[in-house]
Amino acid sequence: MFGDYSIGDLGAIFAMQGFAGLILFSVYVLMALGLAIIFGQMGVINMAHGEFMILGAYVTWLTSNFFQSHLPSLFSGYFFVAMVLAFIASGALGMLVEWGLIRHLYKRPLDTLLATWGLSLILQQAYRSVFGAREVGVELPQWMMGSKQVTDTIEVPINGIFVMVLTLGITMVVAYIMYKSRWGRQVRAVVQNRVMAGAVGINTEKVDRYTFGLGCGIAGIAGSAFTMIGSTGPTSGQLYIVDTFLVVVFGGAASLFGTIASAFTISQAQSTMEFFMSGSMAKVLTLLTIVGILMIRPQGLFALKVRK
């Protein structure tokens, strides 16, 4: 399969596909970070995670429209406002869902899966009723368009670079929150031993709600970033949910580092293979490999060693 290409071409192909993979990696990481917090830390399977992401995307779309019609002078910076709004919208919805639905089901993890699936159907239909069934795309500000020429055979799109920088920043913030802040310590304490954490005075219900809200909020940001590289429809979230769950499980459920490593492996494998075969076969091969590895190593790449 490599026979038709010269060494230089191959290098350029790998670099370009590698970069395309990095954009996919960014979306995976942003989606999976929220999911890893919710699933890894709380043990809740949130099948509606993709819909929280899409909510963020729609919020971004609305914001961009608003800036276009009312504040055209500030249009180049609308994305940062949109991101914050997306975080707030998705996070608030997440906390509402936790309060109304999830907290009744902590003892029945499989049932959260069904209930949140129901929620995702409702949200999808709600998006379809409100925003229409057609996919919408945001207009990129001027500075994000075009691409940067690295060498004469390699060029990288600027919006891709932006999404990657954004991902890096958010990952660092999340890592800080989870591992350095007082609140992150509380979350981890509740995960490790709920009863004991309650006994030392942590309000476990509140921690649960904010954790879920944070996870959903990050999904909202993921949606915001997603609009930079693709268009948004009511069912776009569903396309990513299985992949993202695999990313989280493959990485080892409770490990943020594992999540990132597995997102990197999966996205790179897929985008590199995509060049040499059809997209669907690349996806099948990637998924099959992951499932195969998970059958051999069910705890994922980086498992947290704890006694249960």
Partner: peptide, 19 residues
């Protein structure tokens, strides 16, 4: 349009109230 709302609601109701 109502079907997905109905199905989703059914999922949630069954899980929450009638396991």
């Amino acid at each position: 349009e109502l079907w997905l709302f109905g199905l989703g609601g059914l999922f949630i109701a069954v899980v929450l109230f009638f396991p």
